Amino acid sequence: MSRRPMPGFSARVLRCRNPPCRRSPQIQSISPRSVSDAASCCSITASAIPRSRRLDTLDWYKRLTNAAGGEKETAEFARLFLVPGMNHCSGGPATDGFDVLTPLVAWVEQGRAPERIEARAGATTPWPGRSRPLCPYPRQARYLGSGSIETAESFVCTAP
């Protein structure tokens, strides 16, 4: 059976610990069908998310988590940040303005994995300027009970 990636899927950066894996055709792109191959020999150190529907992405991430041995093991090399309300690439009633490059560089170069990413709502949303934390799945942003409901500082990432 041929291992073809999901349409629109792109793996950006792989850091392989096992030299034979560097030449392996299975890690040229990672799809739901090749997740266990990648998890067995590579650390995914960059965003490697299929450009598809949210449920497909969640399914892929759950398969990756199972192949890696659990949430704790997966969090060592991959994190999924969902953006509630965001359309396919941007827009929608969402806090869809955020910088993922800076936290990614800090993770890859300094070993500091992102615990949250601050996002802002654009001028055309119902709440221009609102900020929220984007949390690594499965954690979700929860209001602390005090402070402005419009600022990310009033929220914490917690288990659902």
Rank of each mutant, 00 (worst) to 15 (best):
S2T: 10
R3W: 06
R4A: 06
M6Q: 07
M6L: 14
P7R: 09
P7G: 04
P7W: 05
F9A: 13
F9T: 06
R12W: 04
L14C: 07
L14T: 05
R15H: 08
N18H: 14
P19Q: 05
P19M: 02
C21R: 06
C21N: 01
R23I: 09
I27C: 12
I27S: 03
Q28I: 01
Q28W: 00
S29C: 11
S29R: 07
I30Q: 01
R33W: 03
S36Q: 11
S36N: 04
A38H: 07
A38R: 05
A39V: 13
A39K: 05
C41G: 11
S47K: 05
A48I: 04
A48E: 10
S52P: 01
S52Y: 03
S52C: 08
R53A: 12
R53E: 15
R54N: 04
R54K: 13
R54P: 01
T57E: 11
W60F: 15
K62P: 00
R63V: 09
L64F: 14
T65G: 01
T65F: 00
T65W: 00
T65S: 07
N66W: 06
N66V: 13
A67N: 03
A68D: 04
E71K: 10
E71N: 03
K72V: 15
K72I: 14
T74L: 15
T74K: 11
F77H: 14
L80T: 02
F81Y: 10
L82Y: 00
V83R: 11
P84F: 02
G85T: 06
M86E: 11
N87P: 00
H88Y: 10
C89I: 03
C89Y: 08
G91W: 10
G92I: 08
P93M: 12
T95M: 03
F98R: 02
F98P: 06
F98H: 09
F98I: 05
D99M: 04
D99N: 15
T102W: 00
T102N: 07
P103F: 07
P103R: 05
V105Q: 12
E109C: 11
Q110V: 00
G111F: 03
G111W: 06
G111A: 03
R112M: 03
P114E: 00
P114F: 04
R116H: 12
R116E: 10
I117T: 09
I117A: 06
I117S: 09
E118F: 12
R120M: 14
W127F: 13
P128K: 13
P128M: 12
R132A: 08
P133R: 09
L134A: 12
L134G: 11
C135T: 12
P136R: 09
P138Q: 05
R139F: 13
A141I: 09
A141C: 08
Y143Q: 10
Y143H: 09
G145E: 02
S146V: 06
S146W: 10
S146E: 12
G147C: 13
I149K: 14
I149L: 05
T151M: 09
A152I: 10
E153V: 12
S154E: 08
V156D: 14
C157W: 10
T158K: 14
A159V: 13
A159M: 13
P160L: 05
